[in-house]
Computed example of a mutant assay.
Amino acid sequence: MPTLGIDLGGTNARAAVVDEHGQILTSTKVSLTERSPAAVVEVIAQAVAGAMVAAPGVEVRGCGVGAAGQIHRDSGIIAVAPNLGWRNVPLAGMLTERLGRPVRVVNDLAAAAWGELNAGAGRGAHDVYVVFVGSGVGSSIIANGQLVRGGGGVAGELGHTKVVPGGRRCGCGELGCLEAYVGGHNLIALARELLVSGRSTVLAELAEGDPARLTPLTLERAAEAGDPGSREIHERAGQMLGMAIANMVTVLNPARLILGGGVLMNCPGLRRFIVEGVQALASTTSREGLLIAEAELGDDSGLIGAALLGA
């Protein structure tokens, strides 16, 4: 029987009716105009209603939500959601009451990993490590075919491992997180600092002097053009990502490493750093037989995974 999947991002909510094979039957997207918990719940309800109207006569048996943030395992309380500015929001309870059906809330990368495992690049594997680099950095672990969530539900938070003690402040509020140096928002912030300082004529030319035009790809192109400041930021980000993921390969020994997210898909140079880092730094035995694959489901991975987890 189909289930409802919801992908809650920082700017919109998507809802879909998904069958048991991970195929999307209908989907809708509604923009977030406010980010208060009550307003977001109403937007989600609107998206769900739209998806259901587009699937007349289809019964659904459950609902899963993938949301960016640190989420308590059993309660569905979002402890921290930097993109929404939330702390300790009982989203699962609020949605269960509003939608009139049980709702399971999981981290967006857990949902994406489950989607890729069942309907994407992870099919046929039992031990998978998934890393997405987009506006932030997320990862999820699947061991022996099961999602590893940890005692409190926040296992796999690669983006919030520390790489520079006392370093840049991350969106989570802590200092020196990997995400503070390699997440898309932070790469843009670092590029903006470089542009505004006047130390990069190449970056200024590519962005036409407008900081609002900066993207991680702009930074990568400036680095490849030989701009010293851009190259420093880009290489540091790539080396940090490569080492962090190589260490996780050594620890977890996955059969498959799946890479995705807007930054990695649009910045092949950063992806190369990861592949080279894993080959050079992961232990020899841990990378034997390892397959590095690109996520196949694109923006739908979290939507599909949330639905399957909500069944």
Score class of each variant (00 low, 15 high):
H185Q: 14
A79D: 13
E174N: 14
S27W: 09
Q239N: 14
V164E: 14
G198P: 01
D7T: 09
C63E: 07
L291M: 13
T33G: 12
T284R: 14
R213P: 08
T33E: 14
E97V: 13
D108V: 10
E205V: 02
V163K: 06
G134V: 01
T218L: 10
I78C: 12
L158S: 07
L206G: 05
R199I: 01
L290C: 03
R256I: 13
Q279P: 01
G184C: 08
N266E: 15
L297G: 00
L187H: 08
G93A: 12
A39N: 08
A121N: 01
A143Q: 13
T11D: 11
A51T: 08
R192T: 15
M265A: 15
I304Q: 00
H160I: 02
P165L: 11
N253A: 15
W114N: 02
L291C: 11
A79E: 15
G22T: 04
P211D: 03
L281P: 00
G145W: 04
V41G: 06
L178N: 06
D108H: 04
E224R: 13
T250D: 05
E276G: 10
E232F: 08
L259D: 06
M94K: 11
V89D: 05
S230E: 05
L214P: 07
L99W: 03
A110K: 15
G9Y: 05
A223C: 05
A13N: 06
C267A: 12
A125F: 15
L252T: 05
G171M: 04
R149V: 14
H234S: 10
G198H: 07
G277R: 05
L303G: 03
A45T: 12
G120Q: 00
A246Y: 04
V53R: 15
L206M: 07
E288V: 14
L32K: 04
L32P: 01
V182P: 05
S140L: 03
G238L: 07
R61N: 13
K162L: 15
A189H: 11
Q279W: 04
G302Q: 00
E224N: 11
R87S: 14
A244Y: 04
T11H: 08
A47V: 09
A143F: 12
G242P: 05
C63I: 03
A125D: 14
V103E: 11
T11I: 07
G198W: 07
E34Y: 02
P228G: 08
T33I: 11
G242V: 04
G50W: 07
Y129R: 02
Y129E: 03
M243N: 13
E224I: 01
L203I: 02
I141M: 03
P228Q: 11
D19R: 02
P2Y: 07
D300S: 07
A51L: 04
S230T: 01
V251P: 00
L308K: 02
V58I: 15
R256Y: 09
P82I: 00
E205S: 13
A155Y: 10
S197D: 09
L147K: 05
I6H: 06
V58R: 10
S200E: 08
V60N: 08
V89K: 04
V251T: 14
A112K: 01
G120A: 00
V163F: 05
C172K: 08
S27F: 08
I304C: 00
T11V: 10
T285S: 15
G100H: 06
R287K: 14
E157R: 11
